[in-house]
Simulated scan of single mutants.
Amino acid sequence: MTYITDKNIKNKDFSVKALDLADYENCNFSDCIFSGANLSGYNFEDCSFENCDFSNTKITNAAFKNVSFKNCKLIGLQFDECNPFLLEFSFDGCSLNYASFYQLKIKNTRFNRCTIHEVDFSETDLTKAVFSECDLAGAIFSCANLQKADLRNSINLVLDPEQNKLSGAHFSLDMLPGLLGKYRIKVD
């Protein structure tokens, strides 16, 4: 496989002409369109993506090792299908609506100012994850590990404390209705 390192890739539309299949290391992608593309089997290590559109991109067995996404559209991405080996990424100002992180081990992951509507975090290990200023409307947390996670500055969180591991997790008082919703308790 081809090895590409230290490249800045700007304003490319990979939904029309595919990105060269390669191992990408220390590359920066900005203002690129990957929407509907097939990135299955690609490897990205120490890469950054800024203002990129990945809507409905196929990422089966793609590797994301220390990858940052900033102001990207990641709608409908099935992160649970990517390569779990050394999987590590962060999200800043991204739209992750309808994505899936099902059963992934993504400890210490940072989600900053993200829209995370209807995202599946079922059985996901989010130990020490940080959700800062995120909108979690409709996000699914079922049998998730949120131990020592920080969700204090986020909104629209609904989860069942009996179905998730929450020891040491941080929540704000405003989140109390979302944590007690199953009990039909009204908090004023």
Rank of each mutant, 00 (worst) to 15 (best):
F89V: 07
S90L: 00
F91Q: 02
F91S: 07
F91G: 03
D92V: 06
G93I: 00
G93V: 00
C94Y: 01
C94N: 06
C94W: 04
S95K: 11
S95H: 10
S95N: 13
S95Y: 11
S95V: 15
L96V: 02
L96M: 09
L96F: 05
L96W: 02
N97Y: 00
N97V: 01
Y98P: 02
Y98I: 08
Y98A: 12
A99H: 00
A99T: 02
S100D: 02
S100N: 02
S100L: 06
S100M: 03
S100E: 08
S100W: 04
F101G: 04
Y102E: 09
Y102P: 05
Q103R: 15
Q103V: 03
Q103D: 11
Q103Y: 09
K105L: 09
K105W: 07
K105Q: 12
I106E: 12
I106T: 09
I106W: 08
I106V: 14
K107T: 15
K107W: 03
K107D: 11
N108G: 08
N108F: 15
N108I: 06
T109H: 07
T109C: 14
T109F: 07
R110Y: 11
R110S: 13
F111R: 00
N112Y: 12
N112L: 12
N112I: 15
N112P: 00
N112A: 06
R113Y: 14
T115G: 09
T115Y: 05
T115D: 10
T115R: 12
I116R: 06
H117T: 04
H117I: 07
H117C: 08
E118D: 14
E118M: 10
E118N: 12
V119E: 03
V119N: 03
V119G: 03
D120L: 04
D120S: 11
F121E: 04
S122R: 12
S122E: 12
S122V: 05
E123T: 15
T124Y: 09
T124L: 08
T124W: 07
D125Q: 00
L126I: 01
L126W: 06
T127D: 10
T127Y: 15
T127W: 13
T127S: 14
K128E: 13
K128M: 12
A129W: 03
A129H: 02
A129N: 05
V130G: 07
V130L: 14
V130N: 12
F131V: 05
F131N: 04
S132H: 14
S132G: 01
S132C: 09
S132I: 04
S132E: 14
E133V: 09
E133M: 13
C134W: 06
C134Q: 08
C134S: 10
D135W: 00
D135S: 08
D135R: 05
D135T: 10
L136D: 03
L136R: 01
L136V: 06
A137G: 11
G138H: 04
G138R: 01
G138V: 04
